[in-house]
């Protein structure tokens, strides 16, 4: 008997959940995977800083001014090697960087999450309410976005003063608009779809429509924007701290560490600025690599 059947056997479609497809598409870029790996590593060492750092850089009792500005690899008075050298206070740069990462990441992620919550809510309100609320909110967004973030943050901090809380506040104020615009854009597209109208005709509660129907559709672009904004927030915080308007000197973030080394760099003592800069750079690049790939995977416009 022949094994051939009359109808052509339909090719078995690969059954993949959207999540599986997302994961496999994301992993298609080895660079992005590397970014994710590095970023995870950075988060882990930042979280574990108090346990793995050779010294507590905030504890002035542990610092020895005699060990100031030592070259990388020197063994200090406390008996351990300063692998990345010391700053003018005799602070071990490696420890300073680990603790600085904690602050940079906290400020970056914290401000991004708050800005996301605020922005997404306002964007959703604008999309759902429409009309005057919408145009008012969007005017505000346009105004905010047309003004450079660095300047806005600079001014806010100039009037409010230094401090971690103020930095986070300033970052939230300059960043919420990105989220608002993103969410409103996707929500509007989705809102015009017929099924939303159907849901409204069925008199489903507004909250259900928003959370079950609108929000899930806004998530992919929100994730992309959010990832990029975390990187931006970290860079912005570092810049503000470098300009002397960010975190207080007692809890130096990466930006402040770099600023501290600025004056010594001209005399060739590069490591005080150099290594915190590398840490900052690697953090931001790894987040951007992940964000880039996320955008390519989640952007339906680029799909063929």
């Amino acid at each position: 008997m022949s094994t051939t059947t009359i109808a052509a056997a339909p090719p078995v479609p690969r059954v993949e959940t959207p999540l599986q497809r997302f994961v496999s598409e994301f992993c298609a870029s080895r660079l992005a995977l590397l970014g994710l790996l590095i970023f995870t590593f950075i988060v882990v060492i930042a979280v574990l800083a108090p346990w793995i750092a050779p010294q507590n850089p905030y504890d002035l009792a542990q610092l020895d001014i005699m060990d100031g500005r030592m070259e990388p690899g020197t063994v200090g008075g406390a008996g351990f090697t300063y692998w990345l050298g010391t700053d003018d206070q005799g602070r071990d740069m490696l420890s300073g960087i680990l603790y600085g990462l904690r602050i940079s990441l906290t400020v970056g992620a914290g401000s991004a999450i708050i800005a996301c919550l605020v922005g997404a809510s306002l964007g959703m309100i604008a999309a759902y309410a429409g009309g005057r609320t919408d145009s008012l909110l969007m005017r505000l967004v346009d105004l905010q976005l047309s003004f450079p973030a660095i300047l806005a943050a600079l001014m806010i901090l100039a009037f409010l003063g230094k401090g971690i809380f103020n930095v986070v506040l300033a970052l939230v104020i300059v960043e919420w608009a990105y989220y608002a615009r993103t969410v409103r854009g996707s929500a509007l597209v989705e809102r015009r779809r017929e099924y939303i109208e159907a849901a409204q005709c069925l008199a489903l509660p507004t909250s259900r429509i928003i959370f079950r129907h609108l929000l899930p559709n806004c998530l992919p672009p929100l994730i992309v924007v959010g990832t990029m904004q975390v990187a931006r927030a970290i860079a912005l915080e570092a810049t503000l701290s470098f300009l002397g308007l960010g975190v207080p000197i007692t809890e130096p973030s990466l930006g402040l560490l770099i600023a501290n080394g600025y004056e010594y760099m001209l005399s060739g003592k590069y490591w005080i600025s150099f290594y915190p800069g590398i840490a900052l750079l690697v953090t931001i690049v790894s987040i951007n690599l992940v964000g880039d790939q996320l955008r390519d995977v989640l952007n339906p416009r680029l799909k063929k």
Binding site: T4, A8, P10
Partner: peptide
């Protein structure tokens, strides 16, 4: 595309 006539899955006269 499977080998053979591509239209056979829609063809009323298809045969082995």
């Amino acid at each position: 595309l499977p080998a053979g006539c591509a239209f056979r899955s829609r063809c009323p006269r298809a045969e082995p």
